[in-house]
Design a protein around this nucleic acid. Structure first.
Length: 434
RNA sequence: GCGGGUAUAGCUCAGCGGUUAGAGCGCCUGACUGUGACUCAGGAGGUCGCGGGUUCAAAUCUCGUUAUCCGCCCCA
C-alpha cells in the first residue's frame, strides 16, 4: 500500500518552501508597521464556536466543516476560518484589558473545508489574516483593506481588482432580503425544489449567480445600498473616501455578499484576473456582532483572511520568487588526509553563521565538486596536502571558475566580522594554484 | 453535491489491440588518479494510477475505483 496525501491536501516540499517564507515574512514585516501582533490558535475548536458565528445557513457551516466527536464526547471542528478562533482567544484572555483597540494577525493558519478540489480550491488551505478589534471607525475598515492591497502590491501581483460593498445592519439585510424575494417571486416559483431552497436560504447569494435566469431577473432588482440606514450610508461613504485618500483603486460591487453570516456593513474581496474560476484572493469585512455573540462585550471589529495557495498561484506567473541557494560555501577535501581539517573549517564557518557543507561519505574530488554545485554554493574551498602545509585555502568561484588562495586565518577573521559572499571569500592573493 | 477531461521513467510527454514500452530533461559511471557546471561515450531507472471484465493477445477496448485538472456550486 502506497499512501498519498488525502484528497484536497498538499505537501509543501523543500523546493517550494522559500515561497511560503517569502510571503510570510513580507506579511509580518508589513503588518508590524501598522502595529499588528501575531496570534496562533488551535487547529480545532468547539464546533459551536463556528455554528454560532458563521451562521447555520452558511454553506461553510452547513456542509463543509470537518466535524467529529472526540473520545470525551465533545463535538470538535477543524477550523473552517480564522476569525472566530482569534475572537475566542481575544475574549478568553481578556486582551481588551490591554488597550482599547487590538490588532491581531495570524500567518499560515490551516483552514479546513470539505470541498470538491480544483486548482486554487483545497480541503486544507492556509490563510494570512488581520483582525482590527475595538474600532467602529471607517478608517479601521480602510486600514484592513489598505494592508491587504499593499501586501499584494509588494508581492508583485498587478492584475488586482478591489471590490467593496456594504450590506448594512441586520435590519437592512432583513428588509432587503424581503425586497429581493419579492422581486424574484415569479422566478423562484419556477425553480426546482432544491434550487428554490438554496435561493431562499440566502437570497443575497442570488446576486452573485452566474445563471442567466438570475442575472436577467435581477438586472433591475433593488440595490442593497438603497436600503442602508443613514448611519451605514455615511460609514460606507467614509470608507470609500479613506480608500481614495490612500490611493487604493477600488470598485463598489453590489454582488459581494460573502459566505459567512457574521458580516455587517463593509464587505470586500480582492480578485486576481490571473486565477481562473477561483479568482478571489481574499475576503473580509466588518463583524461588529461576533464578540458579543461569543459572550464578550459589544466590540466593533473588522478583518480579512487571505488564501496563501491562491496568492502563490497568482505570484507564479506574475512575480516568481527566486530559489535561494542551499549553502554559501562547500569545503572540498582534495586528499583524504585533509578530511578532518575540512570538517573543522566547516564547523568554524557554521559557528560564524556561514551556511557551509562538506562531504560525509568519502566521495572523490569530482563527486565533492558535484555536490558543491548541487548545493548552490557559490564558493568551493579546496583543502589538500599543499593547503595543509601552507595553512591556506584554495577558493574557487563556481560561477566564474576563478580560483585563488587565501590564508585560512583571514577567511575566519572575515567571517568573524560578519562578511559574506564575495567579501568573505575574495582573495588578496589572486594566484591560481594549478 | 452536479457535469466533463486526464493518469505511461524523478519531471515533461509520445505510443492508443500484436516482438523486449520509447524520447527529451534529470540521475549514475567513465573520458579527466586535486575541480562541478559545458562536451563526448556508456549505464541504471517502469506493478503503463489501482481492481475487475472482454480477447489467442490489453499501456491501448470496457466497467469500477482513487487522484488530479476544467466548468457549475461555493469560496480563500
Amino acid at each position: 500500500m502506497r499512501f498519498q496525501a488525502p484528497r484536497g491536501t498538499q505537501d509543501i516540499l523543500p523546493d517550494q518552501i522559500h515561497r511560503w517564507h517569502h510571503v510570510e515574512s513580507t506579511f509580518l514585516d508589513l503588518v508590524a508597521r501598522y502595529g499588528y501582533r501575531e496570534i496562533r490558535t488551535p487547529v480545532f475548536e468547539d464546533t459551536e464556536l463556528f455554528t454560532r458565528t458563521s451562521g447555520d445557513t452558511s454553506e461553510v457551516v452547513n456542509k463543509q466543516m470537518y466535524t467529529f466527536e472526540d473520545k470525551g464526547g465533545r463535538s470538535i471542528t477543524l477550523k473552517p476560518e480564522g476569525t472566530a478562533p482569534a475572537m475566542r482567544a481575544y475574549i478568553e484572555h481578556n486582551l481588551a484589558a490591554q488597550s482599547a483597540t487590538t490588532r491581531l494577525c495570524y500567518i499560515s493558519t490551516p483552514v479546513f473545508r470539505y470541498e470538491r478540489p480544483q486548482k486554487g480550491r483545497l480541503r486544507e488551505h492556509h490563510q494570512l489574516g488581520c483582525e482590527l478589534i475595538g474600532s467602529a471607525s471607517p478608517l479601521a475598515d480602510a486600514e484592513i483593506i489598505e494592508i491587504t492591497y499593499k501586501l499584494y502590491e509588494v508581492l508583485g501581483i498587478s492584475e488586482l481588482l478591489v471590490k467593496v460593498n456594504s450590506i448594512g445592519k441586520d435590519a437592512t439585510r432583513r428588509a432587503y432580503r424581503e425586497a429581493l424575494l419579492d422581486h424574484t417571486k415569479a422566478l423562484l416559483a419556477d425553480l426546482e425544489e432544491a434550487d428554490r431552497e438554496h435561493a431562499l436560504r440566502n437570497p443575497l447569494r442570488m446576486l452573485d449567480s452566474k445563471d442567466p435566469k438570475f442575472i436577467e431577473a435581477l438586472a433591475d432588482a433593488p440595490k442593497v445600498t438603497d436600503y442602508l440606514e443613514p448611519e451605514s450610508q455615511a460609514h460606507f461613504a467614509s470608507v470609500q473616501e479613506a480608500l481614495a485618500e490612500s490611493g487604493i483603486p477600488f470598485e463598489v460591487s453590489p454582488t459581494i455578499v460573502r459566505g459567512l453570516d457574521y458580516y455587517n456593513d463593509t464587505v470586500f474581496e480582492l480578485h486576481s484576473t490571473s486565477l481562473g474560476a477561483q479568482s478571489a484572493l481574499c475576503g473580509g469585512g466588518r463583524y461588529d456582532g461576533v464578540i458579543k455573540e461569543l459572550g464578550g462585550a459589544e466590540t466593533p471589529s473588522v478583518g480579512v483572511g487571505m488564501g496563501i495557495e491562491r496568492l502563490l498561484i497568482a505570484m507564479e506567473s506574475q512575480a516568481p520568487v527566486p530559489t535561494p541557494p542551499m549553502l554559501e560555501a562547500f569545503v572540498v577535501a582534495a586528499t583524504d588526509s585533509a578530511r578532518p581539517k575540512v570538517r573543522e573549517i566547516a564547523r568554524s564557518l557554521r559557528e560564524r553563521g556561514v551556511a557551509t557543507g562538506f562531504d560525509l561519505d568519502g566521495r572523490n574530488v569530482k563527486g565533492q565538486f558535484k555536490a558543491a554545485d548541487r548545493s548552490g554554493a557559490r564558493y568551493a574551498l579546496v583543502l589538500g596536502d599543499d593547503e595543509l602545509a601552507g595553512e591556506y585555502l584554495t577558493i574557487k568561484d563556481l560561477a566564474t571558475q576563478d580560483q585563488w588562495h587565501r590564508a585560512e586565518s583571514e577567511v575566519i577573521a572575515a567571517a568573524d566580522r560578519g562578511l559574506r559572499g564575495v567579501e568573505l571569500f575574495a582573495g588578496s592573493h589572486p594566484a591560481r594554484s594549478d
